[in-house]
């Protein structure tokens, strides 16, 4: 595991060097992403000029949600998205073939071999926003709430990773490589808002089979003192379950993998 991490670091270094090659566009995208962040923020603020709260969420709560959401969103953009975006290319050019003949955990490398620093702007801004909210006294900071918050963020990351594995596996199995990245977009558009704004049936779905509630809503609730302990525990259990299920799907995919024609 540790040695694989070392290799991944090398690949990241390589991938950063690669993106630096086109320095102009690199710097431009960092800025563009920073402004994206600000735009997203403005959207919320416009909301709250009209209403005091949305589905029980005050503007401060919403900012907490936004900072959690953007944190996870930019992390997946930095580490995972660049890989799913070139999945089709990887399969069609035989990159996956060659990867599978190496003594490596292929899954780790399919999902993590590329990195894109373009979202670094959003990532740091989300952290700045979070710190600002702490200093404003918006959060409930106790040992328990901080611990639960950390667990919930951890579960969120595991869930996102599992969703990526599942999507990647399904995309390879069904030979629908472009659809996977499309799906990621719509998935995250649900996470921008608290699940409380959705009808009860959808909400149920978001806490169970399609567990996106644990990606942004639950961590934000936890640190804002809005929720209870249970969702955090459920989230943790569901994250482990989804990791197991996604691993099984991955195994099945590799077994049925047909490899691109010669």
């Amino acid at each position: 595991m540790f040695s694989q991490l070392k290799i991944i670091m090398k690949l990241w270094k390589a991938s950063i060097i690669q993106s630096m090659e086109y320095r102009g566009s690199f710097i431009f995208s960092i800025f563009a992403n920073f402004f994206d962040f600000i735009f997203g923020l403005l959207q919320y603020l416009v909301f709250f000029t009209a209403a005091k709260s949305i589905a029980g969420w005050s503007s401060d709560n919403m900012l907490a949600l936004y900072s959690v959401f953007m944190f996870i969103y930019s992390l997946q953009f930095i580490f995972l998205y660049p890989n799913i975006a070139v999945l089709g290319e990887m399969v069609n050019t035989g990159g996956l073939d060659l990867l599978l003949t190496k003594p490596l955990d292929a899954r780790l490398f399919v999902l993590l071999r590329k990195i894109s620093l373009e979202e670094l702007g959003s990532l740091s801004t989300s952290i700045v926003l979070f710190i600002w909210l702490i200093s404003k006294g918006v959060f409930v900071i106790t040992f328990q709430s901080v611990l639960l918050f950390i667990i919930s963020i951890f579960s969120a990351l595991i869930i996102v990773y599992s969703i990526y594995i599942t999507l990647t596996a399904l995309a390879i199995m069904l030979e629908k490589m472009e659809d996977a990245s499309e799906f990621i977009w719509s998935l995250f558009s649900f996470c921008r808002y608290p699940t409380d704004i959705y009808p009860a049936k959808m909400k149920f779905l978001f806490f169970t089979f399609f567990p996106i509630a644990y990606i942004s809503t639950v961590p934000a609730q936890t640190i804002s003192g809005l929720g209870s302990t249970e969702p955090v525990i459920y989230g943790f259990i569901i994250s482990i379950l989804s990791l197991l299920i996604s691993s099984a799907i991955w195994k099945k995919t590799i077994r049925s993998y047909t490899s691109a024609g010669s």
């Binding site: 070392k6 290799i7 090398k10 060659l98």
Partner: peptide
């Protein structure tokens, strides 16, 4: 496995970098 039509080498990197990565692998 070496396939004439498929690449182990990283397209955008000099081969020496790929060697380095394979050293770790």
């Amino acid at each position: 496995l070496v396939m004439g039509q498929k690449q182990n080498l990283w397209w955008d990197l000099p081969p020496i970098e790929t060697f380095e990565i394979h050293r770790s692998i």
